[in-house]
Design a protein around this nucleic acid. Structure first.
Lengths: 144, 144
DNA sequence: CCACGTTTAGTTGTGCACAACTGAATTGGG
DNA sequence: CCCAATTCAGTTGTGCACAACTAAACGTGG
């Protein structure tokens, strides 16, 4: 039993630690496919939405091109995704899965369901947690 | 109203996004003191517990020396902390606040209370969220 | 038409996260 | 006492996160 520090009372630290803990749970499941957790998230979007612009990926993940560009380049070198310029707007780069990227979907399976159990929370608790996190992410309605 | 993606259903993504969002809220408050969020967490531990070994800091924050050593070096170059070797065990490095580091505590104030409001959650919701995150961080009691 | 502001991806630089490793100090078994 | 295993802090290398910037493509007002 170790003495508790002030950190235990900080909700922001709990978030920070829980988030890192969760990606640590994913790591051994993603490693065999040479994927990181953020790369897996990008693939989830592509699996769900089909070919997507870098801009829309950024919107979905709350990430900017500074993070996504090199990440996508690594996914490309793994032959999981491919890049192409939009013909309608030459500025836009469309990212789509390769056949290998699509095949990965079946090989990986539903990690989320698998790992939700690993947290030791009940289904009710997970639902509540999900709801609260989603709510906390909404920007303030500035009541000034 | 944008189409929801599969990500919205992933509790792990909500954690990941909420954690980054929270540190983004801290950033403008910490920037004037040239602090990052993890550096602020280290100072919180030192303020609460006094001089602490790198090992114990790592335990409190769930971080290893690979992350902490350069971070502490940066805090040292800001003159917020100082390092010293334990006389009892020459392997152990003790990190303690400098006078400037202690003074910072009053200059910064209680950011946590300030920012909890910024989430738009009620006090009850914050309590529940805190409880669930803390519970989720406990390692499994391996029911096999 | 065209100069100017905006949008889009990408690059550069800094700092965190973590695996793998190094080397010194300590501890424990024989 | 001595040597093998362990502990501790630090270094190296890779990848993410984000600010600041660049350059090309687009769109519009004049």
């Amino acid at each position: 039993m170790k003495a508790s520090t002030a950190l235990d009372d900080m909700i922001c630290f709990q978030l920070y630690a829980a988030s890192r803990g969760m990606t640590a749970l994913y790591r051994p499941l993603l490693d065999p496919h040479h994927l990181t957790y953020p790369q897996y998230l990008v693939l989830r979007v592509l699996w769900h939405d089909g070919p997507t612009s870098v801009r829309d990926l950024g919107q979905a993940l709350s990430l900017d091109s500074g993070t996504l560009s090199p990440l996508i380049k690594r996914l490309e070198s793994l032959d999981y995704v491919a890049r192409s310029r939009s013909t309608a707007d030459e500025r836009v780069v469309i990212v789509g899965c390769t056949p290998a990227g699509l095949a990965l979907r079946d090989r990986i399976g539903d990690l989320t369901r698998q790992l939700a159990c690993a947290t030791g929370l009940t289904l009710d608790e997970l639902t509540t947690l999900h709801h609260l996190l989603h709510k906390a992410r909404q920007p303030r309605k500035d009541p000034s």
